[in-house]
Design a protein around this nucleic acid. Structure first.
Lengths: 197, 197
DNA sequence: CGTCTATTTGAATGTACTCAAAAGCGGTGG
DNA sequence: CCACCGCTTTTGAGTACATTCAAATAGACG
């Protein structure tokens, strides 16, 4: 199993020693996936934290009307967005789907708790990890209130440079909080602007 | 100093023993404030975590055009939203203003770090605290993409039952991401609907 | 009382959505 | 290899949601 990426990620924040590294590795489960595969369904028991070792995924929420809302994309070397996996709640309201072939490393909820109990360094790691998540969410919130859909689309492109080739416009639209039709019109406008130069 | 509220809050998540309690209390600074007072300006050095011991505050962001965007309200017994106080960044982009008279308990950044070093229980507390913050942000994100302004306003009223009397509509509008004029129209509509019953 | 700001109201406008239809595209089976 | 199917994307017309601008009214404070 290739755990070099996940270890690099953790070591960025909290440098692990030999023991910690080995114990951490021993808890991880390899989970390959295929393009289009529904890895977690809404309503599933929430059992794992998921690290993307390779590939792209998205996490989305389905409302009562049956409309999907993409909450987050995840690329290689990212943790996947579904944090309900760690909460008290027995099931997750979010679904996770593969956009490409790839591989996850799963950290079971029980393993996560063992890590926290056994080594303080993981408390630190996850504290900082969650903290960074909040900072990100906060600025995304401001973005949503200060920018038009067109600006948000351009921000999306800048933030996820390689992602667009793997994701349908439908899903990008959902992520931006607009309809696919409107995204199509935005893109047309942008192409026309670009053609003028 | 009345630290009963902040202790109750922390003990909900991580039960402190005598030592931990005393050390924690020794780090807190009492900071009364008056209605309308600008407690933190945008660009200020970010030095404290702030707990609202009494009163109401708001945290907002000012964009390049000079428009304010309210990111969060804070009521008694809440931590105040500005988490930049804890990040690497030397200054905060957010401002915090008092909506009423009241009192803060300040936890200096250095004190926060001491807490984390000295007692693992505070690592746990803040890990869980930040985690809960992410879960809240995630559902607020979905809200913003699934609900109309009218629905969001009603959600706001349900979430912060006593707040409306202290906050101007202008600021509520900003929090909801709409103009004050439009909020006024929404309110008119709702009154008219209510009058029919 | 006068001044300043917040709120309300209305008209005109812009942004984004709905619905419907057409065009494009990828995969599958004959 | 081509025809067909299902799904995504594009396009257009009409509509709804929300903003801008301007002016009037109401409230708060010295």
């Amino acid at each position: 199993m290739d755990s070099s990426k996940i270890l690099a990620k953790v070591n960025q924040i909290a440098a692990l020693d030999q023991d910690e590294t080995e114990f951490f590795e021993s808890l991880l489960i390899q989970r390959p996936f295929r393009q289009g595969e529904l890895i977690v369904k809404s309503g599933d028991p929430a059992r794992y934290m998921m690290f993307v070792n390779d590939g792209y995924l998205m996490t989305y929420y389905t409302d009562k009307e049956g409309n999907d809302h993409v909450v987050q994309f995840a690329a290689t070397e990212w943790w996947c967005g579904d944090l309900y996996s760690l909460s008290q709640s027995p099931t997750t309201p979010y679904a996770t789907k593969a956009l490409t072939d790839g591989e996850l490393l799963l950290l079971p909820r029980a393993g996560h708790l063992q890590l926290l109990e056994k080594y303080i360094k993981f408390e630190k790691y996850f504290r900082i990890f969650f903290f960074n998540g909040i900072i990100r969410h906060q600025s995304r919130f401001v973005e949503n209130h200060t920018m038009t859909a067109e600006e948000r689309y351009q921000t999306f492109q800048a933030t996820y440079p390689n992602l667009e080739q793997y994701v349908s416009q439908k899903h990008i639209a959902s992520f931006l909080g607009i309809t696919p039709e409107f995204l199509s019109k935005i893109r047309k406008r942008l192409f026309q602007k670009a053609a003028l130069t």
